[in-house]
């Protein structure tokens, strides 16, 4: 839908790559994945890693309103005006996939409030393996699972594992304690995803979120280059 091009003064409709004033909008990256896999911790780490080089903001989609947003506020990873929460009516996957209107509004309101942004991270509420972001809402999505959730998740697949632009296997430091076989997870992920990238990370480790942050930087550069 590019209805706006005939009505330049009216707000954007959906996934338009441009703002109403014609400039290229921020790249929007979604983070989804099961409950407790470390989505919010990854978002917090990404904010710390990228906030000095990019103008960024976060939209959370909680099951219970504002829980994740408040975690990010407490951690002070960004100024409060750059973090907003969308209420999801007990169905976080609906708000990121089937009816994305509230999230699109949140994105617009963030740019209204803090000026043009380079990057917006949209975090889904912890949901199941089938929750994915609509292409009308995000330009790329990251699916976050963790080794403690069972090392058979990559094998089981599902839309998140199979189609996400980046699969993050989190909490690798816990693998020895929960008996997860990282090599097997990597092989299963490769089988399910083909050439799509997979990152194994431990936010407690030395490199932390660096690899994922690098991937986000690349996406931002590619988005800007299309202008």
């Amino acid at each position: 839908m590019h209805l706006d091009h005939s009505h330049p003064a009216t707000p954007a409709v959906s996934a338009d790559a441009h703002r109403p004033d014609g400039t290229r909008r921020a790249v929007r990256i979604g983070l989804g994945g099961p409950v407790g896999s470390g989505k919010t911790a990854t978002v917090a780490a990404l904010c710390r890693a990228l906030r000095d080089e990019l103008s960024l903001a976060v939209v959370t989609n909680d099951i219970y309103t504002r829980e994740d947003a408040e975690f990010l506020l407490r951690e002070a990873v960004l100024p409060p005006e750059r973090i907003t929460a969308v209420e999801t009516g007990a169905c976080p996957h609906t708000a990121i996939r089937d009816d994305i209107s509230a999230n699109l509004e949140a994105v617009e309101d963030l740019e209204d409030a803090v000026g043009p942004l380079d990057l917006i991270l949209l975090e889904s509420g912890g949901d199941n393996l089938t929750a994915t972001f609509s292409k009308g809402l995000v330009d790329a999505q990251i699916f976050v699972i963790d080794v403690a959730g069972g090392d058979d998740i990559p094998r089981k697949g599902g839309p998140g594992v199979t189609t996400a632009d980046l699969l993050v296997v989190n909490k690798t430091d816990l693998a020895p304690y929960v008996g997860s076989d990282l090599a097997r997870m990597a092989a299963d992920a490769k089988a399910a995803r083909g050439e799509l990238p997979v990152v194994f990370q431990s936010l407690r480790g030395e490199s932390g979120v660096a690899e994922v942050a690098g991937w986000v930087r690349q996406r931002h550069a590619a988005w800007t280059a299309q202008a």
């Binding site: 209420e87 609906t94 089937d98 009816d99 994305i100 209107s101």
Partner: peptide, 11 residues
């Protein structure tokens, strides 16, 4: 009810 206009988040 699936018309994507935000109603699902309101009770």
């Amino acid at each position: 009810g699936r018309f994507p206009a935000g109603g699902h988040a309101h009770s």
